[in-house]
Amino acid sequence: HMTFVALYDYVASGETDLSFKKGERLQIVNNTEGDWWLAHSLTTGRTGYIPSNYVAPSD
């Protein structure tokens, strides 16, 4: 899985979304859904959809 880092805080707007904090590391499970990607937080262990423009590839 690709690892990304959150650029901003995001508060989930629905049950399927994943809240995260700036700097949180996320594994992308599925990024074929356009602007919303299914991600797994390496910080909280939770999985949900995130806005793709809130994250950047982590080196």
Rank of each mutant, 00 (worst) to 15 (best):
P57Y: 08
T47S: 11
H40V: 15
A12R: 05
W36N: 05
S13Q: 15
Y8S: 07
A56F: 09
H40I: 15
G45N: 09
I28P: 09
L7Q: 05
Y8Q: 09
S41W: 00
N30R: 08
L38M: 08
P51V: 01
N30F: 10
T44K: 02
I50Y: 00
R25Y: 15
E15K: 12
I50A: 02
T3E: 13
R25D: 04
T47D: 07
Y10T: 01
V29W: 14
L7A: 04
F4Y: 15
A12Y: 02
N53Y: 10
L26I: 07
T32W: 09
T43I: 12
H1L: 12
E24N: 02
K22N: 03
G48T: 01
L42N: 05
N53R: 13
I28K: 06
V55E: 01
E15T: 13
I28M: 06
S52Q: 07
A6L: 04
W37R: 02
R25V: 15
S52I: 06
F20R: 00
D59Q: 12
H40L: 15
L18Y: 03
T43M: 11
R25S: 08
L38W: 11
T44Y: 03
H40K: 15
T16H: 15
V5D: 04
H1N: 14
L38V: 07
K21L: 11
N53S: 15
L42K: 05
T47F: 10
I50G: 00
D59T: 14
A39L: 01
T32A: 12
I28V: 10
F4L: 07
T43P: 03
G34T: 14
L18S: 03
D59C: 13
A6I: 02
K22Q: 08
D59M: 12
Y49V: 06
T32M: 12
M2A: 11
E24G: 01
A56V: 14
A39G: 05
I28D: 00
G14N: 14
F4S: 03
T3A: 07
S19F: 05
K22C: 06
S41C: 04
A6F: 01
V29F: 11
G34M: 11
T32V: 09
I50P: 00
K22P: 01
F20M: 07
T3K: 05
I28L: 07
V29K: 08
I50K: 00
A39N: 00
M2Y: 09
G48E: 01
I50F: 03
T47L: 08
T16E: 12
S13V: 15
E24I: 00
R46C: 08
K21H: 10
N53K: 13
E24K: 00
Y49H: 06
T3I: 15
G34S: 14
N31A: 14
G45K: 07
V5C: 06
H1Q: 13
N31K: 15
S52A: 13
V5W: 06
A6G: 06
R25A: 08
F20V: 07
G45V: 01
S19A: 07
Y49A: 03
L38I: 07
Y8R: 09
I28T: 03
E33R: 13
Y8N: 06
N31R: 14
H1E: 12
T47A: 07
T44G: 04
T44S: 12
V29C: 13
G23A: 03
Q27D: 07
T44Q: 06
E24Q: 04
T44F: 02
V29E: 07
D17V: 07
T44L: 04
S13N: 11
E15W: 09
A56C: 09
T44N: 06
Q27V: 15
P51R: 05
H1I: 12
D9T: 07
S52W: 09
N30G: 15
G34F: 09
L7V: 07
L7S: 03
A6E: 00
T16K: 13
V5K: 05
T47R: 09
M2S: 11
L42D: 05
T47C: 12
A12V: 04
N31Q: 14
L42T: 07
E15D: 14
V11D: 10
L42H: 06
T3Y: 15
S58M: 15
V5A: 04
G14E: 08
D59R: 07
V5L: 07
G14C: 15
P51C: 06
W37T: 03
